[in-house]
Amino acid sequence: MISALTATGLGKCFGRKWALRDCTVEIEQGRVAGLVGPNGAGKSTLLNLMAGLLAPSEGSLEVAGNRPAIDEEQLGRVGFLAQDSPVYASLTVADHLRFGAHMNPRWDRAFAQERVTAIDLDPKQRAGKLSGGQRAQLALTIALAKRPELLLLDEPVASLDPLARREFLAALAAYVAEHGISVVLSSHLVADLERVCDFLVLLSAARVQLAEDVDTLLARHRRIFGPRRDLDRLPSDLRVVWSSHTDKQTTAVVRTDGPVLDPAWQIEELTLEDVVLAYMGGSAEAEPPARPKLGVAR
């Protein structure tokens, strides 16, 4: 089974500053993976490494079964939509489709034509005069019409208004549902990803904090709250991701493989956004040494 992404100890530094470090992630083929994290967390760096625009400083990286941009066949297998959807301002929409056709051996001319018509782009329009949403749609059309096995999208909806955002993600979801390709897309807004992603990679401070199937992720995280107490005495199978105390009450986001059994806690399910925010809150506490495990007397 070829993975969409296999990164091992991957790192990239610019000068002395590490933009990405110790990145070890595997994403299976056919997944739609969301890449979240605050600005400057290394999302763009990881995507540019995967697209072959950057060379790793350390570690190894394979996308769709091969090193990025190793040859033209590999370049053809990976579609990339860069941040802010760069297009040639002086070239028309039709020129861009011709560009795609000349640059890609597996170019799907009919699909590209159809899609441009469907999203209502005037082929004679210069790309420099398109709106942000239209430009993103044009760039997505080029990335899709090359028939990639893996599609990389760097903040594809960041500059779009809510309506264009929804249309873009709907178009993407429809295409992925039909063709079953692998997708990695980044966003600093989890709400965008929630609709389309089934896998989540959380980057923060140049490191991978979390890389997991979305369903598993949701099943394993809980918010617990109750009368104020010391979290050190929680059972060892609960890992505290984030916590906050008021005079009377303690609230925490915990990760656990099983149910939370202590009746003193009230338990809430979490949304994906809650989990991500908990990790980005940065209060990932160090694991305290040997705590007693709470069991159930049967």
């Binding site: 625009l53 066949e73 370049l75 990976v78 040639y88 090359k146």
Partner: peptide, 17 residues
Amino acid sequence: ENGTFRLAWTQGVSRRG
């Protein structure tokens, strides 16, 4: 400068080409 290298260099043509 225009960022279009991200478009041009990720199509099915190598940088050398």
